[in-house]
């Protein structure tokens, strides 16, 4: 991390604008439910979250 130049961190595929609308929605929802705490990635959370995308497929609920 540089202290000399401010660089906005970017998402893996590029900038925020390059994220899909769905990906923005996921990130914004995580921010809301985590109360802006920027939750770390832990093995427990990753295991628990694995079902979330699958749960979102299908019937448009």
């Amino acid at each position: 991390m540089s202290v000399d130049i401010f660089i906005v961190p970017t998402a893996p595929s590029g900038t925020w604008e390059d994220l899909t609308p769905n990906e923005r929605a996921w990130i914004e929802f995580i921010r809301v439910i985590s109360n802006g705490s920027d939750p770390r990635i832990t093995p427990t959370r990753v295991r628990a979250a694995r079902g979330a995308p699958d749960a979102g497929r299908g019937d448009g609920s």
């Binding site: 961190p9 998402a11 920027d38």
Partner: peptide, 12 residues
């Protein structure tokens, strides 16, 4: 654009 944190990059 909204700044994306390292953790958020990981979640993506």
């Amino acid at each position: 654009g909204s700044p994306v944190t390292e953790n958020e990059r990981g979640w993506l």
